[in-house]
Amino acid sequence: MTAAVTEFFRMGGYGAYVWPAFAFAALVLGGMAWRVLARLRASEGALDRMRDRAEGGRP
């Protein structure tokens, strides 16, 4: 079992190249989503707060 797992991660001797490639792609793809979602939350959140304040402030 563990031998099979080790063999899998070794990737026929290319593990040191294959896994960093996958990890870097995951990092960049995740970073792209994080950046977009953070900007979306910031601007839409501020808009919502302004709307709430405007509605709460009405007599």
């Binding site: 977009v36 979602l37 900007r39 979306l40 910031a42 601007s43 839409e44 501020a46 808009l47 302004m50």
Partner: peptide
């Protein structure tokens, strides 16, 4: 998906 969300964020930002 990220393009749509990014456009939405930019429109909201400009409205703000």
């Amino acid at each position: 998906a990220l393009l749509i969300l990014s456009v939405r964020a930019e429109i909201a930002g400009r409205k703000l």
